[in-house]
Computed example of a mutant assay.
Amino acid sequence: MYSLSDFDFDLPPERIAQTPLARRSASRLLHLDGDAIIDRQFGDIVDLLDAGDLLVMNDTRVLKARFFGVKASGGQVEVLVERVLDNRTVLAQVRASKSPKPGNRMRLADAFDVTVGERAGEFFTLTFEADVFELIEAHGRLPLPPYIDHTADAFDEQRYQTVYSKAPGAVAAPTAGLHFDDALLAQLAAKGVRFAYVTLHVGAGTFQPVRVEALAEHHMHTEWYTVPQATVEAVQAARSAGRHVVAVGTTSLRALESASQGGALVAGSADTALFITPGYAFHTVTRLITNFHLPKSTLLMLVSAFAGYAQIRAAYAHAIAHEYRFFSYGDAMLLTTTSRKVAHA
């Protein structure tokens, strides 16, 4: 039985990528094939996938979800939108010297007012005075991960989105997808690799470490996802042909596996709090493209469940020794599952 300390590791600060590479597909790719660790370039993914393999990508788009503002009392506030509930209402984290009370108003970005509603756990309900998405796009700031030490600029606003993003709602990027550019996607399509999409709006909880030693006591953050019927049919076709279902990122994997909990992948939308740890048997996904993850994080536990605990430990040690770039703007891995249920898509 694994505990939190089993997922800790020492990472030199200089291994944390602070900026993206000039070209998306120029990153490195660590290919973990069973116990074999192979150093590659991300462009090699064209050779590592076969015609008929299915890439499933998360088409969420990152919101400019961070705001600075003032309360009616004059106190400073920082707001991070966590989830859009409707076109006038959001759930948000609010940092202030004193927590705002229901009915209080705050002025954000010196541009518009919001009204504080009821508290929902660690979040506050905020009501906007006009369309949420328009105000966020016009006045918000891109929320880079907490381990990136610069303020988002125009380059980040372009590069901290996937080239196929279209459904606004995330507060963090599905970072495995950041390695794909249009030229690489065209190469894959020409080879006969298929594409399908899910949407999972990544929440700020993705950066939170687990804080309890006993993993069973951890309360997983929830995220909203949707799996279209067209994606279900694409998965069925790939599996019927004996091809791989390749999740681009842990968010795509969580959406597919969340929608497969009955054994078969089903279309639909729901919240998921699926917490994948070693011992989980995967229903749908057979390969995973992913970045390197934070120590003590649920995502490190997920990839350990997918490719094997010892194998991931060895791969991470290799990546640190060979100066791979870590986290959101870092390099990627290609994994094949070692734990799979026989299920019908």
Score class of each variant (00 low, 15 high):
residue 2 Y to K: 12
residue 6 D to N: 15
residue 7 F to R: 03
residue 10 D to E: 15
residue 13 P to T: 03
residue 14 E to T: 11
residue 17 A to S: 11
residue 22 A to W: 04
residue 23 R to S: 12
residue 23 R to C: 08
residue 24 R to Y: 00
residue 25 S to C: 13
residue 25 S to N: 15
residue 26 A to F: 03
residue 26 A to T: 08
residue 27 S to F: 07
residue 29 L to H: 00
residue 32 L to F: 00
residue 41 Q to S: 14
residue 42 F to I: 08
residue 43 G to P: 04
residue 45 I to H: 07
residue 46 V to N: 00
residue 48 L to R: 02
residue 49 L to Y: 10
residue 52 G to K: 04
residue 54 L to K: 07
residue 55 L to D: 01
residue 55 L to F: 05
residue 56 V to P: 04
residue 58 N to H: 10
residue 59 D to F: 06
residue 64 K to L: 11
residue 65 A to V: 10
residue 70 V to Q: 14
residue 70 V to K: 15
residue 79 V to C: 13
residue 81 V to R: 11
residue 90 V to H: 04
residue 91 L to V: 01
residue 94 V to R: 00
residue 94 V to S: 06
residue 95 R to D: 03
residue 95 R to G: 07
residue 96 A to Q: 02
residue 100 P to Y: 10
residue 103 G to S: 04
residue 103 G to C: 04
residue 105 R to C: 07
residue 106 M to T: 01
residue 108 L to V: 05
residue 114 V to C: 05
residue 115 T to A: 10
residue 115 T to D: 10
residue 119 R to S: 12
residue 122 E to P: 14
residue 123 F to S: 06
residue 129 E to H: 05
residue 129 E to V: 10
residue 130 A to W: 01
residue 131 D to W: 04
residue 133 F to K: 11
residue 133 F to M: 12
residue 135 L to D: 05
residue 139 H to G: 06
residue 142 L to M: 12
residue 145 P to F: 01
residue 150 H to R: 08
residue 152 A to N: 00
residue 154 A to G: 05
residue 156 D to R: 13
residue 156 D to F: 13
residue 158 Q to M: 14
residue 160 Y to W: 05
residue 160 Y to N: 06
residue 163 V to D: 00
residue 170 A to I: 01
residue 177 G to H: 07
residue 177 G to K: 09
residue 181 D to M: 00
residue 181 D to H: 00
residue 182 D to A: 00
residue 190 A to D: 13
residue 191 K to V: 06
residue 193 V to K: 03
residue 194 R to S: 06
residue 204 A to P: 12
residue 204 A to D: 09
residue 204 A to L: 14
residue 209 P to S: 09
residue 217 E to L: 09
residue 219 H to Q: 12
residue 224 W to P: 01
residue 226 T to A: 15
residue 227 V to A: 02
residue 230 A to R: 15
residue 233 E to V: 14
residue 233 E to C: 09
residue 236 Q to T: 12
residue 244 H to I: 04
residue 250 T to M: 03
residue 253 L to M: 10
residue 257 E to G: 02
residue 258 S to V: 08
residue 260 S to R: 08
residue 261 Q to D: 07
residue 265 L to C: 05
residue 266 V to A: 12
residue 267 A to E: 09
residue 270 A to D: 15
residue 272 T to L: 07
residue 272 T to D: 07
residue 274 L to H: 02
residue 274 L to I: 15
residue 275 F to K: 03
residue 280 Y to I: 11
residue 283 H to L: 00
residue 288 L to H: 11
residue 292 F to R: 02
residue 295 P to I: 03
residue 295 P to C: 06
residue 296 K to Y: 09
residue 297 S to K: 09
residue 298 T to H: 11
residue 302 L to R: 00
residue 302 L to C: 02
residue 305 A to C: 12
residue 305 A to I: 08
residue 306 F to A: 05
residue 308 G to T: 03
residue 311 Q to V: 04
residue 318 H to L: 04
residue 322 H to W: 04
residue 324 Y to C: 08
residue 325 R to Q: 07
residue 330 G to H: 03
residue 335 L to F: 05
residue 336 T to P: 02
residue 336 T to H: 10
residue 338 T to H: 09
residue 339 S to E: 13
residue 340 R to Q: 13
residue 340 R to A: 13
residue 341 K to D: 15
residue 341 K to V: 06
residue 342 V to W: 01
residue 343 A to V: 14
residue 344 H to C: 11
